[in-house]
Design a protein around this nucleic acid. Structure first.
Length: 920
RNA sequence: GCUCGGGUGGUGGAAUAGGUAGACACGCAGGACUUAAAAUCCUGUGAACAGAAAUGUUCGUACGGGUUCGAUUCCCGUCCCGAGCACCA
């Protein structure tokens, strides 16, 4: 009986599915534990060996927690709406549903081979109407709520309406767009359309004009996290800024809570830091500067974090898009300003960013009054000021802000240093440290003292107040695409009207083509009868993050047709205890999900304010490419070690025909027709390939398919090897070299049970030494799994197995618990051995063995003895001696005397069970 | 530029409340079994020097300092690599 992994794995897959081994129910007699993977987008390429890394880790943890007596929810599903399926549909005319289903089937096959313990009865697909019904429902809830800043909670719109009816909007402190003040009397005289327009400014999901990232190549708008360096994350197409009327989610209302609640979750520091940056809280002051264009005077509001530097504000700058530009441009500057604006508009976002070193700008002709120095300072326009942050206008302090400094030098504006001894001859002094000077009442204070003192003064003068600003913007929620959730919204007399829950799901209509219409409308405009009760329905669809924002809730109660998640299910499963996924979702999915959850929390639908308690980011698995070297001008290939002697071209070769960097020459010849007659210059009879770490991709021929590994080595080897590769959170290249070591271990483990075709486990009592091997392992594996150090656990299994071989132990008392320990890592082989050990039930229902301290205690310890830190000899002493007794033993030892021939002992340092150091 | 990680053999990586650096694995070399191969098993494997050998000595965790009986681990400075953010006032 050899270890026949193919047969074993097949049998157990069948057993698990027939017995529904991993089906999980709400069970209040057991503590719950919820382990979640970020569900995949089912792409046409299938899984490569890098994808399952996180899934394997979460599966190990789930199995471990089950053995520890937890009721573990471990579901899986598909994030199935998205651009690639739609692009593919445009190219081939195939319906995205068809290709998506095909891809899902393939994914499922691949996942099943690896032996995951998912409860597939809870599978969700975001493109399934019975699922997106609840995405649409959540949108409707957001549409019918507003955010009360005073109570920090979302509240029903109906409540807002009754406040307006009684008191107008003056008492309301809401997260909203710009609304003029009105009284209750005025409200009651407003038309339906006027009321609707006002309420829209308050809704959590609202339709509003905004500057958006427009991607012409994709024909759609994109959210901020879908754009990087002026290019779309998907496809790398250029993105420009455009003003458009779009659906948005008022994520910014939750900025404060999203920031503070980061303290409640166990995420890595770097991930929390990324979210903190993205949310971008900064404390400062809002201040009013009096400005005049010579004819009229205005109050211009700006935001600053450096109120202490007002004395050095020598000019002001407006963003080109600012509404102040129009008001403050004087007659004689008008043509210059217009020219500048035209040029600025032409530039793409990318070009704007590329020109950070040079400043550009134009003078408006207006002047402001510095409220502290009372001097007139000019008002300029420049691209370096962003319209979307603060008020779109700044006071410029060139001495202490590098951007203002560059601008001032370019246009020859005055620079006044405000900190004693700072050097501003070639750069500004941006640090918030030093003693103030040239600053009137602030002179002599440190910067840290001066900031609050200045804000205080500003408030006293009545020209501003303390203010906290966030960078986090509202999420743009419309996409001009086909393959997404339709909005449950129709338009009646120009007013956006919500559908009701009973009308959901609003299913995606059929269209003849998946392209925008000739008039530039989204694809849904092609659908016939895309109307509700005679009124036109919204034609955009929701973005990718809509479906992934609450999927973890749906898994708790996937077949509930009345609610997203039932009260009972939610109060049992609560939230995700362990979430494993890639770091690429740090500022997208993980922000939106938290927002979505908090909104539902405000409404009382969910019982936890945070969705993911602990989060682990698994590293990326990169490809390890192999190269062959063709001698120039021929079809001869030279082995790596000899390539310096020739002039060669480096060519990627399929890693699947290379093993341990040795090329399979026959396979190479049949790989591509052009190599059929290739000749080789070998070293030691072999062709050695070069290698490099690159992204895993088809074009580099370095994609390794998990199916092939499963066929050649088995799923258990794949699982263990992926864990053995290195720390979970670290990125590392896949290297098939080395997989043999893990495979050999499994075979060795198998042979502990079966020797020479015979099941050889004995019922004999274990010795203390054997028990020690076991209990050392229990301790180590338990600690490692809890710290997610799966790589060192694998080593521990190898060591323990070798130790058992050394003492020749094949006793049940040792092997049975070891099988349980190993089962999270290598479930198939362990299930098989478990059955051979005479158990009827799956090993998944076994109990994790208890660690017993006594068995690991030795009766003696071999102390390394060092002199002045330098190791000299070893001394074996009984355990439990006092420090005094150990010192005495050291003095009596003959080795000590030998090494002490000339010097005398000054001090003996004893670290019990560690080391003895003698200082002389 | 700012923030956070990280630099250990030929390779992946172990080891940090400071205590035998290089666990485990790959690769490589040698050996056993075999007609042979595969499989399996055993031995060696950081570097330099000395020795027939057992063994010993010195150096060694990016670099330069510091604290300590003792530093991969703590502190200061420098260099390099990776990730994220980037006109956010």
């Amino acid at each position: 009986m050899e270890y026949n992994f193919l047969e074993i794995e097949q049998n157990w897959h069948r057993y698990w599915s027939e017995n529904k081994t991993f089906k999980v129910k709400t069970d209040s007699s057991k503590p719950k534990f919820y382990v979640l993977d970020m569900f995949p987008y089912p792409s046409g390429a299938g899984l490569h060996v890098g994808h399952p890394l996180g899934y394997i880790a979460s599966d190990i943890y789930s199995r471990y927690k089950r053995l520890k007596g937890f009721n573990v929810l471990h579901p899986m599903g598909y994030d199935a709406f998205g651009l690639p399926a739609e692009q593919y549909a445009i190219q081939t005319g195939q319906h995205p549903t068809t290709t998506t289903e095909k891809n899902i089937l393939r994914y499922r096959e691949q996942l099943d081979r690896i032996g995951f313990s998912y409860d597939w009865s809870r599978e969700v697909r975001t493109c399934d109407p019975s699922y997106y019904k609840w995405t649409q429902w959540a949108f409707l809830e957001m549409f019918s709520h507003w955010y009360n800043k005073k109570s920090q909670k979302a509240r029903p719109i109906s409540e807002l309406v009754s406040i307006f009816e009684k008191a107008g909007n003056s008492e309301i402190n809401a997260a909203s767009g710009e609304v003029d003040a009105f009284t209750s009397t005025q409200w009651n005289t407003f038309s339906e359309a006027e009321k609707s327009a006002i309420l829209m400014q308050y809704r959590v999901a609202y339709l509003g004009e905004t500057s958006v990232n427009w991607c012409a190549a994709l024909g759609t708008v994109l959210a901020n996290d879908e754009v990087k360096e002026g290019l779309s994350v998907r496809g790398g197409n250029p993105v420009e800024q455009r003003k458009m009327r779009q659906w948005q989610l008022r994520v910014s209302a939750y900025a404060e809570r999203l920031l503070f609640d980061l303290d409640k979750v166990e995420w890595s520091d770097s991930l929390k830091e990324m979210q903190r940056n993205w949310i971008g809280r900064s404390e400062g002051a809002e201040m009013i500067f009096k400005v005049s264009n010579g004819e009229q005077q205005y109050d211009l509001e700006i935001f600053t974090t450096r109120a202490d530097t007002v004395f050095g504000a020598t000019f002001m700058v407006l963003a080109p898009e600012s509404e102040w530009v129009e008001k403050l441009t004087t007659g004689e500057q008008r043509s210059a300003v217009e020219e500048y604006l035209v040029n600025a508009k032409k530039k793409t976002e990318r070009e704007r960013m590329a020109e950070t070193k040079k400043a550009s700008g134009v003078f408006t002709g207006s002047f402001a009054v510095n409220p502290f120095t009372l001097q007139n300072i000019p008002v300029w326009i420049s691209e370096y000021v962003l319209a979307g942050y603060g008020t779109g206008a700044i006071m410029a302090v060139p001495a202490h802000d590098s951007r203002d400094y560059t601008f001032a030098r370019q246009f020859d504006l005055p620079v006044i240093p405000l900190i004693e001894g700072c050097d501003i001859s070639s750069a500004s002094f941006d640090a918030k440290e030093g003693i103030m000077c040239n600053s009137g009442f602030l002179n002599g204070m440190t910067v840290k003292e001066a900031i609050p003192a200045a804000i205080n003064e500003v408030e006293k003068l009545g020209i501003g107040k303390k203010k906290i600003n966030f960078r986090l913007r509202d999420a743009i929620f419309s996409r001009q695409r086909y393959w997404g959730e339709p909005f449950p919204i129709y338009y009646k007399d120009g007013m956006a009207m919500p559908l009701e829950l009973k009308n959901l799901p609003l299913e995606l209509p059929e269209v003849d083509k998946f392209l925008p219409t000739e008039s530039g409308e989204p694809p849904l405009a092609r659908a016939e009868n895309w109307i509700f009760e005679g009124y036109p329905l919204e034609k955009s669809t929701m973005p990718g993050f809509a479906g992934s924002s609450a999927y973890y809730l749906r898994y708790m109660d996937p077949s509930n047709s009345n609610e997203l998640v039932g009260k009972e299910a939610n109060s049992y499963w609560r939230n995700v205890d362990l979430y494993i996924g890639g770091t690429e979702h740090a500022t997208g999915h993980l922000i939106y999900s938290r927002f979505w959850n908090k909104f539902l929390f405000d409404l009382g639908y969910v019982c936890e304010p945070e969705p993911f308690k602990k989060l682990i980011n698994q590293g990326m698995i990169q490809g390890r490419s192999n190269f062959v070297y063709r001698v120039k001008g021929g079809n001869t290939f030279v082995s790596l070690g000899l390539k310096e002697k020739y002039e060669t071209t480096e060519i990627h070769v399929d890693v699947n025909i290379v093993s341990n960097d040795k090329l399979d020459i026959a396979a190479f010849k049949s790989w591509m027709p052009e190599y059929e007659n290739a000749e080789f210059i070998l070293e030691n009879g072999e062709y050695v390939c070069g290698w490099a770490v690159e992204k895993m991709s088809k074009s580099m021929f370095n994609v390794v398919n998990p199916d092939i590994i499963c066929t050649n080595y088995g799923a258990d080897t794949l699982r263990m090897y992926e864990m053995f590769l290195g720390p979970l959170e670290q990125s590392k290249p896949w290297d098939t070299n080395g997989i043999d070591g893990v495979h050999r271990f499994l075979k060795r483990f198998w042979r502990l049970f079966i020797q020479k075709e015979v099941f050889a486990v004995s019922e004999e009592k274990a010795t203390a030494k054997e028990l020690k091997i076991l209990h050392k392992l229990i301790k180590k594996v338990q600690e490692d799994i809890e710290n997610f150090s799966f790589n060192t656990s694998v080593s521990a299994f190898m060591i323990a197995t070798n130790d058992l071989y050394e003492v020749g132990c094949t006793k049940r008392e040792i092997l049975e618990p070891m099988t349980i320990l190993l089962s999270p890592f290598a479930p198939h082989i362990c299930e098989e051995l478990w059955k051979m050990l005479g158990h009827n039930e799956s090993i998944s229902f076994a109990t994790f063995p208890e660690y017993i301290e006594a068995n690991t205690v030795e009766n003696s310890f071999e102390y390394p003895v060092s002199f002045n830190g330098k190791l000299r000899f070893k001394l074996t002493l009984a355990i439990g001696l006092s420090v005094k007794e150990i010192e005495a033993a050291v003095l009596e030892d003959e080795n000590t005397a030998r090494y002490l021939s000339e010097s005398t002992i000054k001090k003996i340092i004893v670290v019990p069970n560690k080391i003895i150091n003698i200082v002389c």
